[in-house]
Write a protein that binds this DNA or RNA. Structure first.
Lengths: 335, 335
DNA sequence: TTGAAAGCGCTAACAC
DNA sequence: GTGTTAGCGCTTTCAA
């Protein structure tokens, strides 16, 4: 019977074995000042030999500061995955550690955040939270909250986001430059940023004097929504020559839906996505899209979070500049 | 200055306010036996009013059992997301809580697991771990490990997995039944399960007396790998009439690559995927695929994990039965 | 530079 | 049903 898992090694064991006091051993393990090199060497050696692993819980229990930054994210959302990856990279700088809390079908942002509070996180980074501003503010009253990838005007909550309106404008302007005039937008349904991108689209169309041809089709986040939207677009009395999609995944659905009906992309219809997601350069046709620079976004969010945890800043908003990635799904307007 | 975040409310505060002892308050908060209904009501009311939140760390520090089950997963892997969702669902039964640890570019399974050990998890569920059996076994010596979605023969490690060989055989048999004989397999590169599916393909082909036409093309996990493989397949002297792909994402790439070259799916070439992923029914053509039943897989893994944590079982292996989902990407062989 | 003692917030063992 | 006592593994005064 493989019982008897290596019973726990504590700092007491290490100290005894290294014949020094527990506090001294503690100093060494924390790389704090106040121990001789000789002691340091000895303690470290013993710790290694015994397979000592500092107990995070006990440590944070004693030292009020937990060193934990909570992160909520949607498991099924590729863009969130990019940000999580970026946060891990940022966390490498040390001093603070990530605690993940997933938003899944059965668990919303509020419950996910609640878990993190019980973990005594010093600050929360919430990725694309679908939470009312009232609840968000209530949360922010308990712990510093940094909302990422969700345009938000909520006093007390930090925001790190892309300029959604500007991003869509980039797409529209790009298409207009290619000669397109009949450009429709497929939105993201109830997703964060969807209203902003929708509005940005309408503004950009107006700025180009194209208000009368502007049209928004309801969409969503997934490929299936794009396929559905394609059907709807194909049913229009007049087929547009270009489409801007809420995100890349749906853009992929759009392209596939159009191609299925024999409509060439970009020959007959151009499509521009949003996100510059992993698979976006490898579909039926490489996708022209808007890059959000998730790595930078994550880094800024992380810095904010630890800064707020240390009470170094007041909450504010940071808006990143979107970038157009021109690939194969957009081309000159037909005629 | 919005300083003064509601300073921490402890059990002592609750007890004082409810004029009872701390231990009694503790009993109430844990819903343990040994308190009168009247006390229960009073303490709960006070706790609610004060916004008391039990400190998980202190709790687990004191009670040796942490109630934590660690889960490692790849953030960028949609199939892992399904499993994580299933694990959260399983965890609803209570008693144990999930601690997530992501595997990202800069953090491998070993480091992810190491984090969980420091969290004092009682058992680990590792999703698709890409870890040598030696390291896995070393880990399993410290804590019960349940490997999910990775075929593995490693004493001391629990395994919950799909019958990969059987799954691919299902796909091959389905295609043969449709009249196909020239069937190629695009593998998953270095991904877990890739060797097993490759082998399953070869076996099934042999069982069908098709060994001489069997061919494996190198692939990977992403859509781009499928597109690349499509190019390779299109370059073959004789185009096969069917393809089995390591997963759905790559199958999508394959279909798109083929269609780009004017090859009809399933008219000219049939394609079968693996995973029954979210987007698989909404692509250019709805994908025929193999379902792994991630919900059940997750539930079994969870039960194993808490069972092992309580030392109720010895490690073992559970193999799930794959199921063929027939959709539009497979059809009768041409001729 | 080192060590002794106190205590973080909680639970568990025991007495009442 | 209730309170008292001890202590989880660690950090943190404080004194030596």
């Amino acid at each position: 019977m493989p019982r008897g898992r290596s019973t726990k090694v504590t700092l007491v064991d290490v100290a005894r074995e290294a014949s020094c006091s527990v506090s001294l051993a503690s100093i060494v393990m924390r790389d704090a000042a106040g121990a001789s090199d000789e002691t340091r060497r000895r303690v470290k050696a013993v710790a290694g030999r015994l397979g000592y692993r500092p107990d995070k819980q006990a440590r944070s229990l004693r030292s009020t500061r937990s060193g934990l930054i909570g992160v909520t994210f949607g498991v099924h959302q590729p863009f969130h995955a990019e940000l999580v990856e970026g946060l891990y990279a940022a966390a490498e700088t040390g001093g603070h550690e990530i605690v993940l809390s997933a938003v899944v079908g059965s668990i919303d942002d509020r419950r996910a955040a609640e878990t993190l509070l019980r973990d005594r996180c010093e600050a929360l980074v919430m990725i694309g939270p679908t939470l009312g501003t009232a609840r968000l503010r209530a949360l922010a009253a308990e712990v510093p909250v940094v909302a990422v990838a969700r345009p938000l005007s909520c006093p007390g909550v930090d925001v790190v986001r892309i300029d959604d309106r500007g991003g869509i404008a980039l797409a529209v302007d790009h298409l207009v430059e290619l000669g397109h005039r009949a450009i429709v937008h497929v939105d993201g349904g109830s997703a964060p940023s969807s209203p902003e991108r929708r509005a940005g689209y309408l503004e950009a169309m107006e700025a180009q004097g194209l208000s009368d041809t502007a049209l928004v089709i309801p969409g969503g986040l997934e490929q299936a929504h794009g396929v559905r939207a394609a059907t709807e677009i194909l049913g229009l009395t007049e087929l547009p020559t270009a489409i801007t999609a809420f995100n890349d995944r749906m853009a992929s659905g759009l392209i596939q839906g159009l191609r299925l009906a024999g409509v060439e992309v970009p020959g007959r219809v151009s499509v521009v996505g949003f996100d510059n997601a992993r698979d976006s350069d490898s579909g039926l046709v490489p996708l022209t899209t808007i890059d959000q620079n998730p790595a930078l976004m994550a880094r800024l969010a992380w810095e904010r979070a630890i800064g707020r945890a240390a009470d170094r800043y007041l909450p504010n908003e940071q808006v990143l500049v979107p970038r157009l990635i021109t690939r194969g799904s957009s081309g000159p307007a037909p005629h």
